[in-house]
Design a binder for these strands. Sequence first.
RNA 1: GCAGCCGUAGCUCAGUAGGUUAGAGCGCCUGAUUGUGGAUCAGGAGGUCCCCCGUUCGAGCCGGGGCGGCUGUACCA
Length: 499
Amino acid sequence: MGKKQKIFRPKARIPKGLRDIPAAAVRAEAAMLARIREVYEAYGFEPLETSAFEYADALGKFLPDADRPNEGVFSLQDDDEQWLSLRYDLTAPLARYVAEHYDGLPKPFRRYQTGPVWRNEKPGPGRFRQFTQFDADTVGAPTVAADAELCMMAADCLEALGIPRGSYVMRVNNRKVLDGVFENAGITGEGAEFEARHLTVMRAIDKLDRLGPEGVRLLLGKGRKDESGDFTEGAHLSDEQIDRIMAFTGAGGDDRAAVCARMGELVGDSARGLEGVAEMRLIDELLSAGGYGADRVAFDPSVVRGLGYYTGPVFEAELTFEAETEDGRMRFGSVGGGGRYDDLVERFKGVKVPATGFSIGVSRLYAALEALGKLETETVLPPVIVLTMDNDRLADYQRMVMELRAAGIRAEMYLGGSGMRAQVKYADKRGAPCVVIEGEDERAAGEVTIKDLILGAQKAEEITDNTEWRESAHAQISVPRAGLVGAVKDVLARHTAAR
RNA sequence: GCAGCCGUAGCUCAGUAGGUUAGAGCGCCUGAUUGUGGAUCAGGAGGUCCCCCGUUCGAGCCGGGGCGGCUGUACCA
């Protein structure tokens, strides 16, 4: 007795790596997605939505030995014990969709899709466990004209979002060329050991921007120890091999044709490498025909784009400007990427279906636009608030709100339980342009009072004395009840004109 | 995963060799200023001092373990 009952109170907190998005950001992101969609539509892509969950084996992340899906994907078991996983990108579900509906689809099949994807990884600044991608893919097109088109479209998207030419660049490379360079450098072999080394080399190249050439050389050789003392095992290439790889990664430049020529030298007589170089030449030709110079789409052999399924051209959208933020400078780097994956549908169908796609990292691009000041800001005016002065006249207030809405004005009746002062504070916090007041006095006179909150806020800056504040006209007018809509419209017109 | 730093109110933090009912600013809520946002004034809510174990008469403070956060690194379809 006397002791307080312990009641269980769950802690109100969002799971780590996830986030809530407030109104202004929801609107800004929607506006951004609409811009991208316009560009994708213009290129002829059709929308598609697929489910958030897929069978884990369809995502290709099922671990046969462990008898459960990969750690990196959020998974759960269905009633029938089958594993379901949240999609970790939009490409694997596309492959499943195409395979499932193959016969009925036009080939090539061109679709765009946006939505959240989930990855169960360690979150960090700008890295979340749920984030949004916006993809466009062409499935069933063997020609690299499809790849060239995606690069041009990506550039168009960035410009449509207000990123000026020169502040971004699409960087393009080709897996076949990379393979050719490996072959020519004598990095050959078979089986798992070769695969592992191959991966190690690509991972190393991928870190070029962060670790610099010296760091990458270490990773290509014996290995590298970082500041914390952690050691990363290297690829154990010979010095000569390292030189060749480094020469390749440094072979980029302002002239696409010149880059192709250098690529040609570095692949030697590797058939696969030469095939890749020919693809790059064709892409260059198409880009040039489209008027896309190297300032927009450049060839850069240091682009590797992850590891997994890419089989030909790979590309990355990079923002090249730096932004000043609270904690110093910030580089945005890659905001999207893609490439050719000729094997993905084959997993389901057994037949090769050539495909290529591009994916925009919406959340990162959003952050970049925010820093650039290029977000499309609030276009929705906050609602007009009708105060509830008398609780037995609610029907009257509701009628006012409906009249305003019928006239196309966002409006709401105050639904809280507080007094007049709190109601005006509420309206202020909502950013309402004005409030409508009908108390005892107004009703007796057959009027309503319209109080202009924006004009009032300006006055508040000038007034320090309380009595003056209270006695001032408060930027409000009274009009006959029948003139409600007209008077509110006048206030709104003043503000939209003042913008 | 590995390493380093950190963990007191919604936020930013204070907390005195271990010593009573743990504080400040801001924010939030209520009220006053004769039915009105700001200013001012008065009041109020909100804390398992991250958790557990230990040392001690006594732990926010000391020791051990755990959890969480930040930073770097690894992985990242």
